[in-house]
Design a protein around this nucleic acid. Structure first.
Lengths: 192, 192
DNA sequence: ACCTTTACCTAACGAACGTTAGTAAACAAA
DNA sequence: TTTGTTTACTAACGTTCGTTAGGTAAAGGT
């Protein structure tokens, strides 16, 4: 009973993540979702209270994962360069282990409704702040170039956040390769 | 008459670009669009033939702009490093001059219908190929590190394609600053 | 002056939307 | 064996969707 409910709940949420990722939140109907799960649309409401609840859970679960991975990764390192590399690796790891969820997290959060929308934006900005502090420390230590911190972190996160696209690519790239390559490029650049 | 029609046509397309960017294609209704323009939904159909036509035009117009800017920029340079920098600058310039259109181009093309969807994907991949050839040449010339070309280009374009977010930022960054900073970071890296 | 075209309108189409109500079967707990 | 909970169903609600039909008034060209 308890397991049966949990299984269905989980199945619905998993399927929803996949569909929200593929077609987007707005273009995925509850009837589409129900069909994919194999039940009627109305039956979904035995397991959830609204469509938006699905999105809300996905977004905040992912936010939590990113925060935890960041903290754990950074705590173990001393120099800004190592901290940044570890943070990048952790970020990519969270994406790689939640390919559907992270895509929704990056692209569908705009459909959150208002109290949560503001809360979500705040979380995102706090997370970015963590990266900014590392870069700032790197500059203060004369270890990093004196770049525009906001812009640099923005560029880094943009590059990272697109990596979910890489796993369906023809070449089979491992998480390790991706993390190494991206952090190498961002830290040391393309030029010799 | 001719001018009046053109003005309305243009106004509708401009408004649609803005709304598709802000809420997404699927979440923007023809009634929303009409209201914003100040006419009834049915009246839109004097100026266009379907909602999808709007999206189609936006996506392919932007594709054309990216291609033209790339060709023009690269043609003037000799070394891979300069070509890449010029291509990055050109890409950012196209984004900066079409903030709404380029956002739609990056995020809403999935809603294209099938003959055009395939055509669009092919164009994108051709464009990426242009970047890949520059990086390849750079490696062959021993000017660039021996990186995974596909992955490097992917990272570069991901960083570039997110720059439209920067123009609404609190700091007032010029197109020039953004292009310099991003291409500097990607070519020379963060580390000293 | 007449005719065509343009640019808008109201009304409505059938389909799809998220969600609720009410009910029956299955099954665990008592 | 009864009782309560869970999970599904059918039916339907009110709303919104993209789009079409048909009409009207003004403008432009001849």
């Amino acid at each position: 009973m308890a397991t049966a409910r949990l299984d269905r709940r989980t199945e619905i949420r998993q399927t929803a993540r996949k569909m929200f990722k593929e077609r987007g939140y707005a273009a995925t109907s509850m009837r589409d979702l129900a069909r994919q799960v194999g039940i009627e649309a109305a039956s979904l409401y035995n397991h959830l209270s609204s469509k938006e609840e699905l999105l809300r859970e996905m977004c905040f679960e992912m936010a939590e994962q990113f925060f935890q991975a960041f903290s754990a990764a950074v705590a173990e390192e001393k120099t800004p360069a190592k901290m940044l590399r570890a943070a990048i690796k952790a970020h990519i790891h969270v994406i790689a282990s939640n390919l559907d969820g992270s895509t929704v997290f990056f692209h569908e959060w705009i459909f959150l409704q208002e109290p949560e929308l503001a809360r979500f934006r705040k979380l995102r900005s706090q997370y970015e702040q963590g990266f900014r502090e590392i870069v700032q420390k790197g500059i203060a230590d004369k270890d990093f170039k004196d770049v525009n911190v906001k812009l640099a972190v923005f560029t880094i996160l943009s590059a990272l956040n697109a990596t979910y696209d890489l796993y369906k690519s023809s070449e089979k790239l491992s998480e390790e390769e991706i993390a190494e390559s991206v952090s190498g490029l961002l830290l040391k650049g393309l030029k010799k």
